[in-house]
Design a protein around this nucleic acid. Structure first.
Lengths: 242, 242
DNA sequence: CTCCCGCTTTGATGCGGGTCAAATGGCCGC
DNA sequence: GCGGCCATTTGACCCGCATCAAAGCGGGAG
């Protein structure tokens, strides 16, 4: 599963939360140096994932949580009837695998949308040091709570029954999430296919494609393949309100 | 907010997780008697809620989590454009308020669908004893994880674009959740209005009403107002698969 | 460079479900 | 028991999105 690249200075990438760009977004946020060190110690490894490779499969036993370091992933569940539903797209600093806790097994699969890397956190050890480091416990809860908030945004989006409102809301929420990472709010690089996006939004891919066209004609965005530039944030927001 | 009824033996209802029917579903699950006692001690109060009354409002500061003891509630969020989205229906044993942790404020409102009661868990104290009681920490995580799983079920439902599949999936998942409570799997008493249900499913209420009719004609369920009897579980399941 | 394959766009058509409208039925207060 | 109100059902119409089909477009392999 881990992809080693001997030509690369692994030590720089693999170790030390203290030097990670995401430290203020991730578990170490708010901890002092000594406690960051303790988190650092339980990170089992920092795995690289190629595009399309799977971090975990639905049904496999739960051992660890993952925090995304770079790249992006999608989570998806398959119903008994074989219907696939994409549950979310996940960006750096976000925690993954939490829905497995209740049942001891992963409830969905996670797949890399581009070359990505994640930090693996064996749950047994995380649990142990959470009890010892109160600030970590709190920050962990915040991350999980943030995931839940993202899920609620997703639901609110699926609730709109104008298709164009869904797409507008999606773009708006992606833009908002990008800013959490310190990236530009107006320049999005979508890493998922139109088919993935359509599934996520509860539409078919042709509709999504047409709607990108419509939003562009309206002067709200500029589309070039998966590169999206937001030209009129307010206008986009109002389209999102049906 | 708390409704006192002096004719009722409060002590029996209000205190003692040890005697609660939900103890195996709720936070005390898996704890020994001494630890259950410690959980008991931090339960600030066991509040009664009348139909339509609000447990917490979106935007209000976060202080406590709640576990439902009896009855049912809905959570809903209002977008900036004033659009309302029902995020979930919540049954006894489920934990509420968790999505507020990330932002210090409640992100959605919670309203009782019928006469209900909840146990209030001040978060600061819960955090404190979670660190001290490892089994509690774990069970707390399980409850939160279960909430997340329910949210994912909701998304999978919204993803189906056949309206009748959504309703069938909803009925199926409610039935499943009922069984967690030891209730009959085939007899549902819906506590939400058709309008609430429609909003939850991303449909309009007329459509929901017609679909109940369709499912009844198909011999899969029996509808009488909000009382639903499931006649053909397998058939219902296959309708849910589009 | 060229071929080929998968992703994306664009077009034409039909139907499911939204919308507007009105009737029915239960429940509560009086 | 009666009247009024709100929840729910039922009906008619029409639009938006799914469906089916085909044409661009870009990127990777050779």
């Amino acid at each position: 599963m881990p992809v080693d690249n001997p030509a690369f200075d692994l030590d720089q990438v693999r170790r030390h939360c203290a030097r990670c760009d995401l430290r203020d977004l991730c578990l170490p946020a708010g901890l002092d140096a000594a406690d960051v060190e303790r988190v650092d110690d339980i990170v089992a490894d920092r795995t690289s994932l190629a595009t399309g490779s799977t971090l975990y499969h639905a049904g496999s036993p739960f051992r660890a949580l993952y925090v995304i370091k770079t790249g992006s992933l999608k989570t998806q569940a398959v119903s008994e009837g074989g219907e696939l539903q994409i549950l979310g797209f996940h960006l750096p600093g976000e925690i993954m695998g939490f829905d497995a806790l209740a049942g001891e097994r992963h409830q969905c699969s996670a797949e890399a949308l581009e070359a990505s890397s994640v930090c693996r956190l064996p749950y047994a050890e995380l649990e142990r040091i959470c009890a010892a480091v109160p600030g970590l416990q709190r920050q962990f809860m915040r991350l999980v709570s943030r995931e839940m908030g993202d899920d609620h945004d997703h639901m609110a989006m699926m609730g709109r029954n104008q298709a164009i409102a869904r797409l507008a809301l999606f773009l708006h929420s992606m833009s908002k999430r990008q800013t959490r990472l310190g990236r530009s709010a107006d320049q999005l690089t979508l890493t998922m296919s139109r088919a993935d996006l359509a599934n996520y939004l509860g539409l078919v891919l042709e509709t999504v494609s047409r709607l990108f066209g419509r939003l562009q004609e309206m002067g709200l965005i500029e589309v070039r393949r998966r590169e999206i530039k937001i030209l009129d944030r307010e206008g986009l927001k109002s389209v999102g309100e049906c």
